[in-house]
Every structure is written in structure tokens, then in C-alpha cells.
């Protein structure tokens, strides 16, 4: 048994066979040899179901959007399967979506790009307005809502949104994209306690070990060597 093996065993100890098996997959994954695949859906607790903020049309858009950004493939299940759409919904339903810790007093002016967010809308209102405007755009251009577009048409729409090239009613397309993109990546990589990153699949994807972090010895022991551990979340430690 190598030192590395001993160390992995220390981290895997007491986690049960399923988790250990996942850890073993990750350990070997110098190149994509995934711990979690679309064919073997995410382990761990079931994803949260149901939406607090998004209405059914908005939810259909959000699921299609996060699945376009985070498609199911050999590296992970899809964004929706990982709870990313639920994560976004909970953020929009909660204090952040309602503009907590933002200065929301007028008067309102468009401002320069250097002056940052000057929308009178809360993030939740902005996303709601933006989804409706994008839906109208897709129906006008392609006669279909975003979620019913084919993969290439979806890619065109997302790319145009990212570049701020779509004229949307009531909201700048770049601002909408940046907001949605930030939410989706948070949903993939934030602690699973927020509803996304199911079974820590985002952390497994990159090799982030989570909340356990006592590396005073490891920083020398693993200098230049890959460190693998079963990632630990807040719930795992609580």
C-alpha cells in the first residue's frame, strides 16, 4: 500500500461502499473517467422536486437552458438532473432574488457599463422579464419556445444572448445572460445544501474536495502529486 493509498483510505473510511467506489473512479480519473455518468444517474439523496418561483413555462425554459450549458455526457448528468434548475429557482424565490443587499432606490438611469447594475428590477424580476422576452423572441424568429428548439438553434440563441446580440423587450440580453450564467455555474459548484450540485457532481467534475480542508501536511506530501478524496459537503459533516 502506498502512502497515497493510505491517505485515501483515511478519507474514505466509514463512507460506505458506494461512496468508496465513486472515490475510486475519481482517483483514477487523470483524464475523464467519470465518477458519475448519465448512464448511471447521480447517487446520493434524491434531487429536490418542484418549484417555488418559476411557473411551468419558466421552469421548462430554465431546465432547457441549464441542460444546454451543462449537458448530460460521460462527465456528469445534465444540469436539471443535478438540481441546477431547482437551485436557480430557490435563489430567485429567496432573499437574493428579491434584491437583498442591493441598493434599490431611484432615481434610475441607464449609466455606463463601468457603473454596473442600474436596472430598477430585482434579480428575480429581471430573470422573469428576461425569460418572457426571450420566449417572445424565439417564438417570433423560430415559431417555437426556447425549450423546443433543436440543439443547433438553441446554441445559436444562447451564443447570441451571451454576446448581447438579441434585442429583448425590457432587459439587456447580455445582462440576462450574465445573470443566468452566474446562477447556473453556482448551481453546479455551490454546496449541495442549496439544491444544486447533486451528489457533489460539480466538485467531482473538477476534483474539489469540499469542506474538509486540513492540508498543513498535505501541501508538502502532495506537492506535485494528485490529491484525491471523496468530496465532503456541509450536509456530510452535519
Amino acid at each position: 500500500m502506498t502512502d497515497e493509498g493510505l491517505d485515501r483510505r483515511r478519507f474514505l473510511g466509514g463512507l460506505g461502499a458506494g461512496a468508496a467506489a465513486l472515490g475510486a473512479d475519481v482517483a483514477e480519473a487523470a483524464e475523464p473517467a467519470p465518477g458519475v455518468t448519465a448512464a448511471s444517474p447521480a447517487g446520493g439523496p434524491p434531487a429536490l422536486a418542484g418549484y417555488q418561483f418559476l411557473n411551468p413555462d419558466e421552469a421548462a425554459f430554465m431546465e432547457a437552458f441549464v441542460d444546454h450549458l451543462i449537458p448530460a455526457d460521460a462527465l456528469s448528468p445534465s444540469g436539471t438532473e443535478l438540481g441546477v434548475a431547482v437551485y436557480v429557482d430557490r435563489q430567485l424565490a429567496g432573499a437574493w432574488g428579491k434584491g437583498a443587499r442591493m441598493y434599490l432606490q431611484g432615481p434610475w438611469r441607464r449609466g455606463t457599463p463601468n457603473q454596473g447594475w442600474q436596472s430598477p428590477m430585482t434579480p428575480a424580476d429581471l430573470v422573469r422579464t428576461g425569460i418572457a422576452a426571450l420566449d417572445a423572441h424565439c417564438r417570433r424568429v423560430a415559431k417555437l419556445p426556447f425549450e423546443r428548439l433543436g440543439p443547433d438553434a438553441r446554441e445559436d440563441a444562447v451564443a447570441a444572448l451571451a454576446q448581447g446580440k438579441i434585442e429583448l423587450e425590457g432587459v439587456a440580453s447580455k445582462l440576462l445572460f450574465d445573470t443566468l450564467y452566474a446562477l447556473a455555474t453556482e448551481g453546479l459548484f455551490a454546496d449541495p445544501i442549496y439544491g444544486g450540485n447533486r451528489d457533489k457532481a460539480g466538485w467531482r467534475l473538477v476534483g474539489f474536495p469540499g469542506v474538509i480542508a486540513t492540508h498543513a501536511q498535505d501541501i508538502e506530501t502532495y506537492r506535485g502529486r494528485r490529491y484525491d478524496a471523496e468530496p465532503m459537503s456541509i450536509a456530510d459533516m452535519s
Partner: peptide, 8 residues
């Protein structure tokens, strides 16, 4: 720990 290790 673990609450403080919450990037979000």
C-alpha cells in the same frame, strides 16, 4: 466548520 466553508 462546516458552515464557514460555504463559498456561495
Amino acid at each position: 466548520v462546516p458552515m464557514i466553508r460555504d463559498e456561495l
